[in-house]
Structures are given as C-alpha cells and as structure tokens.
Design a protein around this nucleic acid. Sequence first.
DNA 1: CCTCCCGCTTACGTCAACGTCAACAAAAGT
DNA 2: ACTTTTGTTGACGTTGACGTAAGCGGGAGG
Lengths: 163, 163
Amino acid sequence: MAHDLRRPERTFTIRQLCVEFKVTPRALRFYEDKGLLAPARDGMNRVYGHRDRARLQLILRGKRVGFSLAEIREILDLYDEKDGGAAQMAKSLKKFKERIVALKAQREDIDGAIKNLEDGVQRLQRQLADIRPDLLPKADAYDTMLRSRLDGAHETGEPARAK
Amino acid sequence: MAHDLRRPERTFTIRQLCVEFKVTPRALRFYEDKGLLAPARDGMNRVYGHRDRARLQLILRGKRVGFSLAEIREILDLYDEKDGGAAQMAKSLKKFKERIVALKAQREDIDGAIKNLEDGVQRLQRQLADIRPDLLPKADAYDTMLRSRLDGAHETGEPARAK
DNA sequence: CCTCCCGCTTACGTCAACGTCAACAAAAGT
DNA sequence: ACTTTTGTTGACGTTGACGTAAGCGGGAGG
C-alpha cells in the first residue's frame, strides 16, 4: 500500500470506519453480507472508499430512525439503481413518499414524547424545589423558559446514541 | 363484585384494548410479564383501568420512538414512583433530561432522513418527467412546492406503523 | 524465528419481542 | 346441552441484528 495519498482518493480500513462510527468489524461485515455495503478488496482485505463511508452513514442513521436493515437496503438500492426502467422508478417514488409520511408521523410521536418528558421534568423540579432545593441541577428557572420557546438544535458530530 | 359502574370507572377487557390499539393479547400479557402493566384481576381475568390504558399508550409510543421495553419500563417506573426520597427524584430528573436530549437528537436524525428522501423524490420525479411523464402520480408540480414550506401535520387516529 | 495483532471466514450463540401451539376454564350464544 | 368465543397459563419457535469463538494467513517488531 505505497502509491498515493492524495485528496479525495482516501480509503479506509475496516477498523478506521469502526472507530469513526463506533461499530464493530462484525457489524460492517454483516452489513456487507446483507448487501448494504460492497467495499473493494485488496487481496483478502476490505477497502472502503468515500462512497462506502457515505452509505455507512446512511445505514446508521437509518437504524437510528427505526428502519430494518432490509428496509435500508431497499432504500440504498433505490438510490443507486441507475435505471431499471420507468416503472421501477415510479415504484421507487411511491416507496420514498411512503417512507416520508411514516417519518413525519414518527416525528410527531417524538415531539409528543418530548412534551411528556418535559412535563415530568417540570413536576419533579417543582417537587424537588419544595423539598430539597439544594439537589436541583443548577440554574434552571429562566433557562427552562428560554429553551421552551427557543429550542436547541445544533451539532453533535454524529456519534452513537441509543441501544 | 357488584357495587358501582359510574362514569370514569370504565374498565376494559384485554380484547378491547387489543382492538383499540391493534396489538395482540399476547403482547399485553408479555408487557405485564415484563412489569410494564399490572392490571387488576377479576378472578383469573385481567381488568384494565384507565390508568393501564394510559400506560399502554405510553408503551406503544415509546416503542414507536425506538425505546426498548426495558427502557420504557424504567420511564414508567420513574413516573409513578410516588416518592422514594429526594435523592431518587434527583436521579429521575437526570434520566428524564437525558431521554429528552436523546429524543431531540433522534428528531434531528429523522429530519435529516426526511430531507434525504425528499431529495430522492425530487430526482426521481425529474427523471420520470423527462422519460415517462404519464407515470407521474398526478399533480405534484406546485403541490410539492406548497408542502415544502407548509408541511403537513395533522391526525391519523394513532394507529399502528412501523416494523 | 517467534509472537502479536489485524483481518478473513464459517459457524454457532444470544437477546428482545413477540408468535404459535397446547390444554384448559368460564361465559355466552343457539 | 352443546359449541363457540374469550380468557387463562406455560412452553417452545421465530426473526433480526449482531456477538463470540475457532481456525487460518500475513505483516511488523523484538
């Protein structure tokens, strides 16, 4: 492996991706087995390119939003299905739209869940304030006010989450 | 026992809840087994009250937003933990806040996924318009424009979804 | 040369969340 | 009185998404 390390020709070993995305090699091989990834090979060894890396990102986010690997595979297939006929495209289009509807519904669920939990937080904070104000996690009085209308959406890098 | 069947004392059989929420009896018993539900008994038979029903709603939404049954159980426990001491409450408070953060992150994921899919839809629609405009799922040209800024959030009843 | 460590493959194990099936009781319809 | 429906408790099967262990090859370092 000694010939070039220019700009966008960067490639990744399995371990690099594993570290970056906090997954095990086993998982990546599993995804490959299931047809979600198809890295090049250097002899026996897998060589992941920027494309594979991008797909992996999609896979992981797909998982986070609740898609099964099979569903993710479908979506990925639809994406790089250069053609396959107009009929296929129409079917893909329909499926995409269905996914979008489902995701929007899920977003509603999440917003609802957030509200519930925030109510719980309010309750607990009030009770704690009565009984043991010293245990309150610092300034929150008007901080909470702000967040309730301004919300907080920014970056986290994109690391792991649930499970 | 026979003494009162006034207003909010409505109870439900297992099947009623199953029909209403589109789950199987097996699932409800399973949730009970896992400590998420604890309906009263009339002899052998389970009798669900409004409280159980509310919990079930939370369970199902919890599932939809990606919580495991164990996590849901934890949350539920936190909710009806009448007390347990101030220290416990502080811990609960922390956990609630963590959940909220996680859910907001997940909403970001979902918004991202939606955007991706909408891009895919655009792509497909343009290509289809070129090749086979007749296969386009009806009027969409300015309909899409509208939805892209106005979004669509209303009711669906609350029925089943994923998997 | 020997030993690590990374990587590969194949195969079996596991965990969650139920589904399915058996075997039975009690209530409800005909 | 008989059958159907609805309910109960086990116990075992299933699916998805990996984890874990076994066994082997190859390069780097002591």
